[in-house]
Structure formats: structure tokens, C-alpha cells
């Protein structure tokens, strides 16, 4: 019987992803290049924001991936807690640095965008602040992985931290909104997007969103493979120590 859990076997996971990864690299790169190329060179300048608006093609996708990377870590942690599949825990570990980088990109591009628009690099706006807090959560999560030696213990501890952290990150998000209603425009991504953004900007944005998401996916797969191999090395070393 074929089951999705078969892929939880490290060997099977590596074999399958080995076949998928090269094409995923290509597809994600095509999407990113198309989206960014179209966005940067073939869209008109915004009548208010000028060409600055084009940073949206990096800013929004990276922010999108940064948030969803955390959600993916949450799901992976839950799978680890419930079903004890090691690949799941390692995938969560693999996603964290990618999430950190994406959060950083979102913060930096946001600052670059904010400077000409609001006249300042940084404001304590709810969205910006939430992102900064998300960044702190990522750092804590990753630091815990690094600090614990025994891989199983680390997986358990970080999984619980991810669960608790998710609840508190969610609370922080609403606390921050309560704390300060800000400058940041409303969400770019929502069902009634037509109100926020016109089609000319929307299609290239969709492309680069897809590109960033695929890029995230392929990076996580590659990193998970690396983690699995590192883990295998660890297992072999242990075996050797045992043989002594």
C-alpha cells in the first residue's frame, strides 16, 4: 500500500528527492527570473511611488515565504511529535535558516522601500515590528537546535518550542496591532487584491511568489538531505564507538 509516510524513510526520501531536485531547481529559477525580470523591466512605474514600487517583487514574496516557512516548521514539528519520523524533524531544522534569511530579506527590502516612501528606514509599525519579533523567534529556535547535542533531544525540545512559539508569535502579532496602528499599507495578498494592486503589477508578482516558494521548497529539500546525511554520519560514528 502506498502511503505518504513511506517518504519518512530517510533512504526513500533521499532517493525520491534526488530525482526531483534538479528539475525543481530549474523550474524555481525560471519562475524567479521571469517574475523579477518582468517586474523590474516590463512594468510601468507607479504614479506615486515611481520605480521604488518594484522592490515589491522581492519584498512580498520573501515575507510570504518567511511566514509560511514557520508554518511548515510547525507542521513538521507536529508530525515529529505525533509520528516520530526523523525526516520530519530534520526538515523543520532545515527550514529554519531559510526562514531566517527570508525574514532578513523582507526586513531589509522593507527598510529600503520605507526610506523613500515614509522618509525613514524604520518605523515601529505593527507589521514591521511583528516581523522583527518573528525574526527573534527564528533565532531562538535555531539557537536551541545548535545548542543541544543529542539529536533526538534537540528534535523534541525544538518541536515543543516551535509549538509554544507559534502560539506566542500569533499573540504577539495581535498584541502589536493593538499596540500601534501603523503606516504600512494593508495586505498586498488578499482575495480582493484588485482593490490593492492592479493587474500589471499582479501577474509578475504572482510569478515571483511562485518562484520564491519553489526556491524555498528546493532549498529545504536540499538542506534536509544534508541533515539526513549528517545524521547518518553521526549514526556511523556511534556505531564505530560501539565497536571499540
Amino acid at each position: 500500500m502506498a502511503s505518504i509516510w513511506e517518504y519518512a524513510n530517510p533512504k526513500k526520501f533521499i532517493d525520491t528527492t534526488d530525482r526531483v531536485i534538479p528539475s525543481l531547481w530549474i523550474i524555481s529559477m525560471v519562475f524567479v527570473v521571469l517574475g523579477l525580470g518582468w517586474g523590474f523591466f516590463f512594468t510601468p512605474d507607479d504614479f506615486r511611488q515611481g520605480s521604488t514600487v518594484k522592490i515589491i517583487y522581492i519584498h512580498v514574496p520573501s515575507a510570504f515565504v518567511a511566514i509560511n516557512a514557520w508554518l511548515m516548521m510547525l507542521v513538521a514539528s507536529l508530525i515529529w511529535i505525533v509520528r516520530r519520523h526523523h525526516v520530519s524533524a530534520l526538515a523543520a531544522r532545515a527550514a529554519a535558516p531559510v526562514g531566517i534569511v527570508m525574514t532578513l530579506i523582507a526586513l531589509v527590502t522593507g527598510a529600503l522601500w520605507g526610506q523613500p516612501m515614509w522618509g525613514t528606514w524604520w518605523v515601529w509599525d505593527p507589521r514591521l515590528t511583528s516581523f522583527l519579533i518573528l525574526f527573534l523567534f527564528y533565532l531562538g529556535y535555531f539557537a536551541l537546535w545548535q545548542a543541544v547535542e543529542n539529536p533526538d533531544t534537540a528534535a523534541d525540545l525544538t518541536a515543543v518550542l516551535c509549538l509554544v512559539g507559534s502560539v506566542f508569535a500569533f499573540l504577539s502579532r495581535y498584541a502589536v496591532i493593538f499596540w500601534n496602528q501603523g503606516l504600512h499599507q494593508g495586505a498586498t495578498l488578499s482575495m480582493d487584491k484588485k482593490e490593492n494592486i492592479s493587474d500589471v503589477f499582479w501577474y509578475p508578482l504572482l510569478l515571483s511568489l511562485a518562484g520564491f516558494t519553489l526556491l524555498f521548497l528546493v532549498l529545504v529539500l536540499v538542506r534536509t538531505q544534508t541533515e539526513i546525511r549528517a545524521r547518518r554520519m553521526h549514526a556511523l560514528e556511534m556505531r564505530e564507538r560501539l565497536a571499540e
Binding site: 523567534f137 531562538g140 539557537a143 536551541l144 545548542a147 509554544v164
Partner: peptide, 22 residues
């Protein structure tokens, strides 16, 4: 953990955000 107390601050402070804000 050996260097636990520094890590402890890093882990706990983000969790303090909602309480601090309210």
C-alpha cells in the same frame, strides 16, 4: 545545557512580548 542562561534569554524574551505589550 552548559551555556544555558544566555540561550534562555534568547528563547524567553520573544515569548514575553505579548505580556509586556499589554
Amino acid at each position: 545545557l552548559k551555556r544555558g542562561s544566555l540561550l534562555l534569554s534568547l528563547l524567553v524574551l520573544p515569548l514575553y512580548v505579548p505580556t509586556l505589550i499589554f
